[in-house]
Design a protein around this nucleic acid. Sequence first.
DNA 1: TTAGAGTAGATGCAAACGCATTAGTCACTA
DNA 2: TAGTGACTAATGCGTTTGCATCTACTCTAA
Lengths: 140, 140
Amino acid sequence: MTGANEAWESLMKAYSVLMKQFNAEDVWGDLTMREYDVLYQLSKCDGPLRMTELNRHVLLSQPALSRMVERLVDRGLVERCPDPGDRRGVRLSLTPAGRDTQRQIGRPHARSVTRALSVLTPEELDQLAAITGKLSQSEE
Amino acid sequence: MTGANEAWESLMKAYSVLMKQFNAEDVWGDLTMREYDVLYQLSKCDGPLRMTELNRHVLLSQPALSRMVERLVDRGLVERCPDPGDRRGVRLSLTPAGRDTQRQIGRPHARSVTRALSVLTPEELDQLAAITGKLSQSEE
DNA sequence: TTAGAGTAGATGCAAACGCATTAGTCACTA
DNA sequence: TAGTGACTAATGCGTTTGCATCTACTCTAA
């Protein structure tokens, strides 16, 4: 019988341990993990993403994300063009170079993830995905 | 049937969503969540902790932790004294004020955690703790 | 059609971060 | 017991972060 706080602490610990492990791997080239995360989130959606929408998927403040995107644009990995339907907004998408970089990093990283989670049975993977999915959907 | 990468992504999403939610709550006083985390980790161990040991439990680089501890010492929340057995090392512990602050923040935060995880059944809490526990122990 | 509230993203600025390196200590071996 | 390599924590420095704020645009309703 586990309390909610023990479960949350255990989740945080796992996150922290695995994040450090992944960060130590030599697969990130000249990107940080956070920058890769932005490229990855963009790679998942084929259509262009709005800044605000992207910000929902990334653990960064709005200004920090704004500047990170600016840097990625400067480096030719992300394209930023005005949203025709809302002139306040911006549409973000990967450039070919950005997509390429994402894939090049994503492949070995995905292998690391598989290796790190290989201690879990298929049933446990299912349960983990189901439970954490429930958690992120529960924001009202 | 879920793959390891989907499970990891789902875990990261849950972490990110809940972290943002907790961060938005008005319980942190003049501390950041990261600073609270350090106080919390110190509060869990009764005996003094070594810098390196503390660093294992916190998602921060060694220099960042060193300076954060310095700030907490300046604010009177943490005590730093030389380790008699190893003159390179440092022994960290909470001051009474630090313990007090930790408790004052910890109480409402623990309630938030309980509320956020209340969408899970007791069985799911057990499973989540067991699975994430397995993950963090698997570093060889 | 226009005033006022709300939203999207950018910017100024101080604080905090990570990388590389350093100083000091330990532990093992010759 | 002197020398070498590993380990612990601190520091220099350029970059990134968050908070507060700002500008520009949208939406609602009078």
